[in-house]
Write a protein that binds this DNA or RNA. Structure first.
Lengths: 108, 108
DNA sequence: TACAATTGGTTACATAAAGTAACTAACTAA
DNA sequence: TTAGTTAGTTACTTTATGTAACCAATTGTA
């Protein structure tokens, strides 16, 4: 009955990354601050879910939101230090995918 | 309209990892071959979902299933080379979590 | 012989999360 | 006045997950 338990911090980290879309959002933001509409287009996520995810990521301290009161309004989402520090994780996933995932057929 | 798209291999990789429970299953199997019942206990996943996930992981070539016709039957799940090659990814998540996730309160 | 226990699942059903599409507020430009 | 823009929200449908009971094959026990 002495169940060896998984490290709670690891579990917590993976629960962030294993939520659908969050990995892609972080990956995409690693290339710099971006606006809501750009994220929806590049990632292919609906506004409803992007909005929800960005709110969560803000609460978790991974993403910051800046409003530029231009016309029309510009709002930029950017990774915090905590968010940026996930780069090595994303890099490893990237390089694993290059080695082990076969290239999908071109859809021309 | 020239949407810069996320690398399809990366997307594919993250779609595996971002499915609930799969990260934990792979992480747990990195410590060696394990049986169905042990996985359910350590991870805290239901039999229904563990069964489903293991089938997917087998199809994706990340996990292999071996039957030992003992009594009662023993079935072991083990990472393939492809599965084991995710260790650097898990290591990075682990070390990120150590640095950025605060320790949860002890529940004694 | 009947009953219980074990492993590795499956089935049926309830709840939560995600997908889809239409809609909105605030603003400006024509 | 009408249309266009950005950054969302709302209502509704579909899919995924959680929960708990059940099952087949086998052996051990009363």
């Amino acid at each position: 009955m002495d169940t060896s338990v998984i490290c709670p911090r690891f579990e917590s980290a993976i629960s962030i990354l294993s939520q659908r879309w969050t990995g892609l959002i972080i990956y995409q933001l690693l290339s710099g601050p971006q606006r809501f509409s750009q994220l929806t287009e590049v990632i292919g996520i609906s506004g409803r879910l992007l909005s929800e995810r960005l709110k969560n990521l803000e609460v978790q301290g991974l993403v910051s939101r800046t409003v530029y009161p231009e016309t029309p309004v510009r709002i930029e989402y950017e990774l915090t230090e905590k968010g940026k520090s996930l780069k090595p994780v994303m890099d490893e996933i990237q390089s694993w995918s290059q080695e082990w995932i076969e290239a999908p057929p071109e859809t021309k």
